[in-house]
């Protein structure tokens, strides 16, 4: 086996190319101050549009409230009449139910009134008291299902 001529690896003629380690920054379209000014400008514009929109929403909200308040008297008047009728029905029902109990006086605990200081004032009965003489389902409908309506 002939001894091959040994040849050491050497750099190419004229040396290697320079290693491109220098940072090449991206091309700049805007300067920093332009960017900040543009950001502020667009934010101001958007804030103005937001203001216009919220003004519109506010006006619609007021209109809806105004319409509701305009018809409130009819609804309250009708509700009051039905409410008072039901109170009378409740009182009559209690009188009928407790007719055989000795010493029972309607609206009191054996003659002792619940409220003492203002005998003539109209104090609305508590919720469960109002529904005491109905079937339980009506009470439940009013108490729980009204949340979904």
């Amino acid at each position: 086996m002939a001894t091959a001529a040994r040849k050491q690896d050497m750099p190419p003629e004229g040396g290697y190319r320079a290693i491109p380690y220098k940072r090449i920054p991206a091309r700049q379209f805007f300067s920093g101050s332009t960017l900040i000014a543009g950001y502020l400008g667009m934010t101001a514009g958007a804030a103005y549009v937001f203001y216009l929109n919220s003004l519109h929403n506010h006006i619609e909200e007021i209109e809806a409230r105004s319409g509701r308040l305009a018809i409130q008297p009819i609804l309250v008047a009708e509700r009051d009449r039905e409410y008072l009728k039901q109170l009378r029905r409740n009182r009559d029902e209690e009188a009928k139910l407790m007719a055989n109990v000795e010493g029972w006086k309607v609206g009191t605990w054996y003659g002792e009134p619940i409220y003492e200081t203002k005998p003539d004032a109209f104090i609305e009965p508590a919720f469960h008291e109002y529904y005491a003489h109905t079937d339980d389902w009506s009470r439940r409908l009013r108490q729980f299902f009204v949340w979904w309506s």
């Binding site: 008072l84 109170l87 009378r88 409740n90 009182r91 209690e94 009188a95 006086k105 309607v106 609206g107 009191t108 009134p113 619940i114 409220y115 005998p119 003539d120 104090i123 009965p125 508590a126 008291e129 005491a132």
Partner: peptide, 10 residues
């Protein structure tokens, strides 16, 4: 019930 027997109800 808190409405008395002799209280006025229409």
């Amino acid at each position: 019930m808190s409405i008395l027997e002799d209280a006025y109800l229409p």
